[in-house]
Simulated scan of single mutants.
Amino acid sequence: MQLYNKLSAAERATLIEEAGTERITISFYQYHNIGNPQVLRDHLFLNWNAIDVLGRIYVATEGINAQLSVPAPNFNKFKAHLDSISFLKNVRLNIAREQDNLSFLKLKVKVRNKIVADGLDDNTFDVTNKGIHVDAKTFNELIEDPDTILVDMRNHYESEIGHFKNAVTPDVDTFRDSLDIIEEDLKDHKKDKKLVMYCTGGIRCEKASAYYKHKGFEQVYQLEGGIIEYARQITSENLENKFLGKNFVFDHRRGERISNDIISNCHQCGKPCDVHENCANQACHLLFIQCEDCKKAMNNCCSNECKEIAALPFEAQKALRKGKGNSNKIFKKGRSEVLKFKK
């Protein structure tokens, strides 16, 4: 019984292109008490692999967090399978604004301690006592209120290319880093201000809103469905768009354009740019912003050193990586000292 991938990403990309079938990129999450995450993990893999679902799915005792793509002809089968699982019946599906058949190249269903690495001890507060969920129209009204503090619950490399007007954008590398920093910065406004939060699809705000209510914030709100759902609603309801730039997404697309504003710059030359790339040197793989001119001049690398390594034959590169762990730069997205125009 196959419970793992057999094809490489390159092999899968070739098959997708040869098939010529449109794929739909989707994300969803659901907090729910799962008694045996491994059993659910195996069940999902078997059923989704059979209908050619690809993506990154985390299962934990607290629920599921999924980002995936499915062939358009198989969408109804996928939805029917979701609805056959009691706690996933009619779960909200965030459909990508910009589709790409190569958004995911493998099916990875993993059991994790948590579906989002928040660093919190859930036994110390009521995780079900969440903030008030608001739609795009109400959100737009709230963030114009002078008594509102709008907070971006994402990481620096996400908010760098796009965020809501006047939002507080913590300069952090991880979600867990932001929680205490935000509480400390806003500690004098727990009673007199409305704390309004947003993230990519809503999952980080689910936990953060309960945490901040536990910490004494009295007026806590969160954008239902995150930026993805906001973008859908402003289009379908003809609402004013208050988001600037792109929404960073965690697949091969790396971003969806929400407005035409370009609010960031190439990390190598400083020109306006909001396109993320991964360094072509696999021993580095640094995520950074790179314009087309620098991409061409640097062969998709972040530095001259990486450019030289990436030009070596594959076996020579592999030999250089042997015995070495992944560079910490992978987890310091956009932070490398070789980037002259980093945030």
Score class of each variant (00 low, 15 high):
2 Q>K: 11
5 N>C: 12
9 A>M: 12
10 A>Y: 12
13 A>C: 03
14 T>R: 14
16 I>G: 00
18 E>L: 09
20 G>E: 09
23 R>A: 12
32 H>V: 09
32 H>Y: 14
39 V>R: 12
45 F>V: 03
47 N>P: 10
47 N>G: 08
48 W>M: 11
49 N>I: 11
57 I>C: 05
58 Y>R: 10
62 E>T: 05
63 G>F: 11
63 G>P: 06
70 V>P: 05
73 P>Q: 08
76 N>F: 11
77 K>Q: 15
78 F>Y: 06
80 A>P: 06
85 I>K: 02
90 N>T: 04
91 V>F: 08
92 R>T: 13
93 L>P: 03
94 N>R: 12
98 E>H: 03
106 K>Q: 14
106 K>H: 10
108 K>G: 06
109 V>G: 12
111 V>F: 05
112 R>L: 05
119 G>H: 05
121 D>W: 06
122 D>E: 14
123 N>V: 00
123 N>I: 01
124 T>M: 09
127 V>L: 07
127 V>N: 00
130 K>Q: 12
131 G>T: 02
132 I>E: 09
134 V>A: 10
140 N>W: 00
144 E>T: 13
144 E>S: 15
145 D>P: 08
145 D>R: 03
146 P>D: 11
146 P>V: 02
148 T>K: 04
152 D>N: 12
156 H>Q: 12
157 Y>M: 00
157 Y>S: 04
162 G>Y: 09
163 H>V: 04
163 H>Y: 11
164 F>Y: 14
164 F>E: 07
168 V>A: 13
168 V>E: 08
174 T>D: 06
177 D>L: 01
184 E>R: 04
190 K>R: 12
193 K>G: 02
196 V>L: 02
199 C>W: 04
202 G>Q: 06
202 G>D: 01
205 C>T: 07
207 K>G: 00
208 A>Q: 08
208 A>M: 03
208 A>D: 01
209 S>T: 07
210 A>Y: 08
211 Y>G: 08
212 Y>W: 07
215 K>L: 08
215 K>M: 14
216 G>E: 06
217 F>I: 03
218 E>C: 00
218 E>W: 01
232 R>Q: 08
236 S>Q: 15
237 E>Y: 11
240 E>P: 01
242 K>E: 11
247 N>C: 10
252 H>Q: 03
252 H>M: 07
255 G>T: 10
256 E>N: 09
258 I>R: 01
258 I>F: 02
259 S>D: 07
262 I>E: 01
263 I>W: 02
264 S>A: 14
264 S>K: 00
268 Q>F: 01
271 K>V: 13
273 C>K: 09
274 D>G: 05
275 V>N: 01
277 E>W: 10
278 N>F: 14
280 A>R: 13
281 N>D: 15
284 C>D: 07
287 L>P: 05
289 I>M: 00
290 Q>W: 03
295 K>N: 15
298 M>A: 11
298 M>H: 14
301 C>Q: 05
301 C>T: 15
302 C>D: 05
303 S>E: 03
304 N>Q: 15
306 C>F: 09
309 I>S: 10
311 A>H: 11
316 A>F: 13
318 K>M: 14
318 K>N: 15
319 A>C: 13
323 G>D: 05
323 G>R: 02
326 N>H: 10
327 S>M: 06
328 N>W: 08
329 K>I: 13
329 K>Q: 13
334 G>I: 05
337 E>A: 13
337 E>Y: 07
340 K>S: 11
